[in-house]
Each structure stands twice: as structure tokens, then as C-alpha cells.
Computed example of a mutant assay.
Amino acid sequence: MFGVAVSVTSAELRPVPVTTAPARRLPQLFAGLVLYGTSMAMMTRSGLGLNPWDVLHEGIAGRTPLTFGAVTAVTAVGVLALWFPLRQRPGVGTVANVLVIAVTVDAVRWALADARSLTWQLTLLVGGILLNALATAAYVGARLGPGPRDGLMTGLADRTGRSVRLVRTGIELTVLAVGWLLGGTVGIGTVGYALAIGPLTQFFLPHLVWAPRSPD
């Protein structure tokens, strides 16, 4: 959903026909999205810094009456609007990404208070990053359609001929700067997420990615 660098090409992220899928794909998709929203809530409650997109979400939420989850949904819809000129195609995972994460992050944030001690802050931060990587691997691995921000990243890479790494970096630096100017939390968690999320997701992905069976 949020521009994670994993070795899945834009072609691989396009939805695979559900009729050929084993029964575990949909449960894996929804489990991954619920865990993703949970990980986002954990990081916001740590108070030690957020990933670039969540810095933007927090900055907007702080200046509007919208909840954090509602802001993630609104920005996701805005990003989806950019798909049309990029000729990206959504899948069931794309729609679920918008709705499930928005509801989950608000529910977990409601149940989870802000951390008051450094130990609990670090626990929420490290746990949130680990869970975020596992969740990303789960929903991407289900291969039922990319998240809105993933599709923007791969779409721009396809259209411009630039590498996914370069496009991702440009998008996230822009989002981070705007979010910081709006008052979003930038800190050690932001740096930790940037350094750890790619390798961690890459570690989990081979265990969760779905591939169609080879014909007998």
C-alpha cells in the first residue's frame, strides 16, 4: 500500500483471476490488510516517527476534523484518481486496501493509548515495523491487486521508464516533506522504517506469495 520496496514487478502486482486461486488468497489478503492497519496504529501511538505516507496522514488529520483512518481512505481515493492517466487496473485487493485499513487503524488507535514510557514507545515502534513488513508481504503476496500507492509507484515507473526505486524515492520524499510541513511526526521511527521495511518485507514475501499451479 505505502510504497514498500520489494522485488515484485508491476506485472506481478496485477491481479490474477480469482477463479484460478486457492482458497487461502482472500483470507490472506484481508488478514494482511488488518495487520497493516494495526501496525500503522502501533507506530502512531509510539510517538517516535512514522513512515512517509503516515506522516502526511497525521499532518492532514491534525488540521481537519477527519480521523486518521478517514484521512488514509481519502488520500487513497485521491491517489487512485491518478491511476487513470497511468492506465493502471485495480483489483479486489485495491478496493479492500482502502476500506479495511481505514477501519482497522481507527479501531486500533481507539483501543491503544499513546505510549508514555520509552520502553513501551520502542516496543510499539519495533513491533509496528515488523508487523508492517509481514502484513505487506501477506497482502502483496495474495496478488489480488496492488494498493493505491503501490499502483501509483509502478504506474509512474512504467510510464516514465524510470526505475521503481527512483520513482518510489521521489514520491516518498515529496510526501514526507509535505507531511512534515503539515505537522506530521518525523523521528527515529521514520528512519528505522525506511531502513528496515524493504529487507524485512523481502524476507517474508517468499513465504507468502501466491503463484498459479503449473499444468500437469
Rank of each mutant, 00 (worst) to 15 (best):
R213V: 11
L166S: 14
H57R: 00
T104F: 00
A137E: 01
A41Q: 01
G155Q: 05
T19M: 14
G141L: 01
A135T: 01
L125N: 05
F203Q: 05
I101F: 02
A23C: 05
R63S: 09
P148M: 10
G141N: 01
M43T: 13
V8W: 10
T154Y: 00
D216V: 15
M1D: 11
D150M: 11
L48R: 10
A21D: 10
W110I: 13
E58V: 03
L173T: 02
L208S: 01
G32M: 04
I171F: 08
I197H: 13
G179M: 07
D114C: 14
L35Q: 00
G198M: 00
A211V: 13
G145Y: 04
L205V: 02
L35A: 04
L124Y: 07
R25W: 06
W120Q: 15
A73N: 03
L50F: 12
G3T: 04
S117D: 15
N51M: 12
T20I: 15
R14P: 03
D106N: 06
T119S: 15
V178Q: 00
T38R: 05
I60A: 05
P148W: 13
T38F: 06
G93E: 05
T201F: 06
P199E: 10
G151R: 00
L99S: 03
I188P: 09
F30A: 05
S163F: 13
T44F: 12
S163H: 09
R14L: 10
P212I: 09
G62W: 03
I188S: 06
A21R: 13
T72Q: 02
V100G: 04
A11L: 11
A96F: 03
A5S: 14
F68P: 07
V108S: 11
G145K: 08
G179P: 10
D114E: 15
M42E: 07
Q28I: 04
L13E: 11
G49P: 07
G189Y: 06
W110M: 12
A11V: 12
R87V: 02
T169P: 11
A73G: 09
T201C: 13
L50W: 08
M153Y: 04
P22D: 12
A133C: 02
G127D: 02
G145Q: 03
Q202P: 10
D216H: 13
D114F: 15
E58L: 14
R24L: 15
V98N: 07
E12C: 02
P212D: 06
L130F: 15
H57W: 05
L166A: 15
A70P: 07
A194L: 08
L56Q: 01
I129L: 13
L124C: 04
L200C: 01
S46G: 00
F203G: 02
G161Q: 00
A81P: 08
Y139S: 03
G69Q: 01
V105Y: 02
A23H: 12
L208P: 02
G127H: 03
L205T: 05
A5Y: 12
P148T: 07
V79P: 08
P215W: 09
L66Y: 14
R25C: 04
I171H: 04
E12P: 04
L99M: 07
A196R: 11
R116A: 13
Q28R: 07
G183L: 07
I188Y: 09
F68V: 08
I188F: 11
